[in-house]
Design a protein around this nucleic acid. Structure first.
Length: 254
DNA sequence: ATGGCATAATTGTTATGA
């Protein structure tokens, strides 16, 4: 069994103790992280003592992704293109599995320059996945996609209608990735659930459960067939100094 | 009314997130 967790930590330095506890409690084979908000050299060494190797693609102040794994990774790839200015994508091969940690641009506001960048980034992700992988590999693309794919992923679809994270064009761009043959593991196993993975820090977002589901593990067909469980670890959003995202977990019988 | 809170880079304020 292979257990994989993805988590947008919103600063790995601020979430260090929580991340260590998560590894100790959940013992995932792979932990994909987003929004490290630190450079490679500043990434904590603490995870080695817990038996994990870190593959880091950091950046000063913003972005930054990493993959922690119990076994040694190979075939490390960083960045969505050679010209991408942001550290938003890293992938590794671990055993017979290829794992991605992705932090899709937020987009800020529908129609803005950042929104255009978000859409183009998703297109690049689609073409990268299309060209890089074949159907006889095990591939999982995890991370913060900054898109709520359907109204049931949104606490108040009327309030969020056509807003950033929920607009028609972002949802279409997300579906084009799905259409390559990828499956949203949590949704496959919980078709009617209204659980969320992100809640705004402001306005009692978490206590009111005003959330969105924007963090996913997307498995290709061969791997999705092996998915036996998927959960959102919403307990992690409670207590002192939480990230605004909860970790999302999936287990695969491979 | 487009705020609120959190974080990093900096020390008073701005950029960004979602």
């Amino acid at each position: 069994m292979v257990k994989i967790i993805t988590w947008n930590v919103n600063s790995i330095k601020m979430r260090l103790e929580r991340a260590k506890r998560l590894l100790e409690n959940e013992k995932p084979d792979i932990l994909c992280l987003q929004e490290l908000k630190c450079v490679d050299d500043a990434f904590p060494k603490d995870f080695e003592a817990l038996g994990y190797t870190a593959t880091v693609f950091g950046q000063k102040t913003y972005n930054g992704v990493a993959i922690l794994s119990k076994t040694q990774p190979s075939h490390i790839q960083r960045g969505i293109t050679s010209s991408d200015p942001d550290s938003r994508l890293v992938s590794v091969q671990i055993g017979n599995l290829i794992a991605y940690s992705a932090y899709i641009p937020n987009g800020q506001a529908v129609g803005s320059d950042k929104y255009v960048y978000k859409l183009s980034w998703l297109e690049k992700l689609e073409s990268l996945l299309k060209s890089r992988h074949t159907s006889d590999e095990y591939v999982v693309v995890t991370g913060d996609f900054n898109v709520a794919p359907e109204d049931k992923d949104v606490h108040d679809p009327i309030q969020w209608k056509d807003q950033i994270l929920c607009s028609v064009d972002e949802r279409k761009a997300f579906q084009k990735v799905i259409a390559l043959g990828y499956t949203d593991c949590f949704r496959k196993l919980h078709p009617d659930s209204n659980e969320y993975s992100w809640w705004d820090y402001r306005n009692l977002g978490f206590p009111m459960n005003n959330g969105l589901r924007i963090d996913f593990l997307l498995a290709n067909q061969k791997l999705a067939e092996k998915c036996v469980s998927s959960t959102i670890l919403r307990e992690e959003r409670k207590g002192e100094k939480p990230s605004d995202h909860a970790p999302v977990c999936a287990e695969f019988d491979i």
